[in-house]
């Protein structure tokens, strides 16, 4: 069966009127958007535009001052409802636990919640590491990995949860162009294979236009535009064009790899 013919496994995410202030600065100024099941939705914007703060709200690490976040129509502001849905965040730094091996990091969710017997956990860990082409690193410590390998290990750790929504925070930051392409492929392949709803926060235009079904451009805590990559490129707003103005002619083709 063609993977794109599968029924979407991911969830629908809705953000309504989300506001957040730190001290006197309003970091999120009433955000509204919807991510459809199985979609890759990219949020772009310059540093300090509120992208990472938004991600922390989506995963429950921050509480908003106003507004709500709905998954499949249910507010996830209560821990009970949030626990119903499997959501994973791939951190900008990878955020692997430095005291554990890569294999232990990847299996941590299953081990701590005692969801499977140890032999089964090891099988799953090996499978997920193979999915991100990192099988050889299973016994290595995070400190022995390159930046790209850490991010792939973090993706493998997220996959163990079998997420219905996966959030990526700057997945290609601090990576060389080749590693960025590899990460882009991983995001694309994962979405195609599992139809997991994916939300990518990045300021990497190559990645965004390479993987996105739709793109939102943020600045100053507001969403300036939402649309298909083509629509966003053509959006006639000075701030959007200032952010996107360079090098549109060379479009990487992650989708075709």
């Amino acid at each position: 069966m063609n993977s794109t013919d599968q029924k979407p496994y991911g969830v629908k995410l809705e953000v309504r009127g989300l506001r957040k202030s730190f001290a006197s600065q309003e970091v999120l100024q009433g955000l509204d958007f919807t991510v459809q099941p199985g979609e890759i939705f990219v949020i772009m914007g310059p540093s300090g535009s509120g992208k990472s703060v938004l991600l922390k709200h989506l995963i429950g690490l921050e509480a908003p001052d106003a507004g709500e976040i709905l998954v499949n129509g249910e507010s996830i502001m209560t821990p009970e409802i949030a626990a119903k849905y499997r959501m994973a965040l791939v951190f900008q730094s990878g955020a692997l636990l430095n005291s554990l091996t890569v294999g232990e990091n990847v299996g941590l969710y299953l081990t701590e919640h005692r969801l499977k017997p140890p032999a089964e956990i090891e099988r799953i860990v090996r499978e997920k590491l193979a999915d991100v082409r990192l099988s050889e690193a299973i016994h290595k410590m995070p400190g022995e990995l390159s930046g790209g390998m850490k991010k792939r290990a973090a993706i493998a750790r997220a996959l163990v949860i079998e997420p219905q929504l996966i959030l990526y925070d700057e997945p290609t930051s601090e990576l060389d162009p080749l590693s960025s392409v590899v990460i882009g492929q991983e995001i694309w392949n994962l979405n195609q294979n599992t139809r997991v709803t994916s939300l990518v926060v990045t300021h990497d235009r190559d990645l965004a236009f390479g993987v996105a079904d739709r793109i939102a451009v943020m600045d100053g805590g507001q969403i300036l535009t939402i649309g298909t990559p083509e629509a966003v490129k053509a959006f006639p707003d000075a701030r959007v064009q200032t952010f996107l103005n360079a090098d549109f002619k060379r479009e990487p083709r992650f989708k075709n790899i």
């Binding site: 922390k56 429950g60 994973a88 730094s93 430095n98 941590l108 701590e112």
Partner: peptide
């Protein structure tokens, strides 16, 4: 120092996202 560095390098956030 150990817990502080885990906090700074988002390892504790990672634990929380895994419901740990």
């Amino acid at each position: 120092a150990e817990i502080g560095s885990m906090r700074v390098y988002q390892e504790i956030d990672a634990l929380r996202t895994m419901n740990i």
